[in-house]
Simulated scan of single mutants.
Amino acid sequence: MQSLQGSKPPKYLVRLCRKLTNFKTLVNEATKCTDGCWSQDLIQRVIKEVLAEKSSGISTYNADICTPFDVGHSLAVIAEGISQKEFLVTSKPRKSSCTRGSLIIPVSCFPKTTRYQFTPENNLNFYPANDRHFDLDIDDSEELAVAILKGIHNKTIGWTILGNEGKSLGSYRLQAGIAYSHCLKTFGELNHSQPPLGWDNGKDLTAGEQIEILQHLAQVAQIDSPIEM
């Protein structure tokens, strides 16, 4: 493994997977496997669902510890989802069902044929996650897929299910709350009408829009509302 100058070497990299049903099936099969003999079909499904059949520019985010409560994990969740139409302030509430999954992968799990590169410029629409963004480049996708399956099986790779349930460890509201708290500590008071200095516009969302959506996801208005007696 190697990294470029500009960021300290990551301990864990978070990868978001979009198709929940396929993600859950992969995790279940990897967890229940008893002999460590991964079928070619399962390996190819990891390449498709986790790596998106790409060999370069695979978006990941730096996390400090292997838990969905980690700031890096929460920033990754928001960065990957903030531009989706379902997250917009004007959109209807998301359905309560789970929607995707995440893997928290120790860098030590990656084979030598996988490299990471610090690429803040490739984090598109949530500025606070810029300094967490890394791209993966792969010479041997099957080798990496097997490493991911092994890591899930022996529990060195963490995973979580993301959805809209309030009690879920991976709920979007909780993830947004963790990210929002981090942003308050970093930037001070957040006002989407007057974004703090240093918070840049994204590719598709202005700084103000990013803050407004983050506050919407974290349900900040409900938290700040007075209690009716």
Rank of each mutant, 00 (worst) to 15 (best):
T114C: 13
E49Q: 09
W38V: 02
E212D: 11
L217Y: 05
S55I: 08
L169I: 14
Y172L: 12
R115G: 10
K112P: 04
E121T: 07
E228K: 11
L174D: 03
S225F: 11
H192W: 13
I152Q: 01
Q210N: 14
S225A: 11
A30V: 03
T114D: 07
S91T: 05
E212W: 03
N125P: 01
F134M: 03
K112V: 15
Q40M: 06
L162R: 03
P111W: 06
K8V: 10
E142M: 06
R15Y: 06
P196Y: 02
K203L: 15
H73K: 06
R18G: 08
W38D: 06
N28P: 01
N125Y: 05
D64Y: 15
A147S: 14
K150S: 07
G6V: 09
M229S: 09
L20S: 07
D200T: 04
L214F: 08
H73V: 13
R94P: 05
C98F: 12
K185I: 11
G163N: 06
D70A: 02
G101D: 09
A218T: 07
N123K: 08
K48D: 11
D140R: 10
N130H: 13
E143K: 09
K95L: 14
L13R: 02
I211K: 04
G170I: 09
V14F: 04
I148F: 06
I211N: 09
N154R: 03
G177T: 05
T31A: 04
Q222T: 07
L75Y: 04
I65V: 13
Q210P: 05
H153I: 03
T25G: 08
I211G: 04
N130W: 10
S193F: 03
M1R: 02
A63R: 13
D204S: 09
L214M: 12
R45M: 11
L169N: 12
V107Q: 02
D35H: 09
I82N: 07
F110P: 05
C17L: 14
D204T: 15
V77R: 03
H133C: 03
Q5I: 13
E29Y: 00
C33Y: 07
I58W: 02
S55C: 12
S7H: 05
Q215Y: 03
Q117A: 00
F134E: 10
E165P: 02
R173H: 14
A129T: 01
E80R: 12
S193G: 08
L197T: 15
E228P: 07
Y116D: 01
S108P: 03
R115M: 12
G188N: 13
E29K: 05
I148E: 10
Q175S: 14
A179E: 00
N191H: 11
S83H: 10
D200C: 01
V14P: 02
T114G: 07
P10E: 11
I47S: 09
D204W: 15
L20F: 04
I223S: 09
W38K: 00
N28H: 08
S91P: 12
K155Q: 10
P9C: 05
A218H: 02
N22W: 10
E189S: 13
P9G: 08
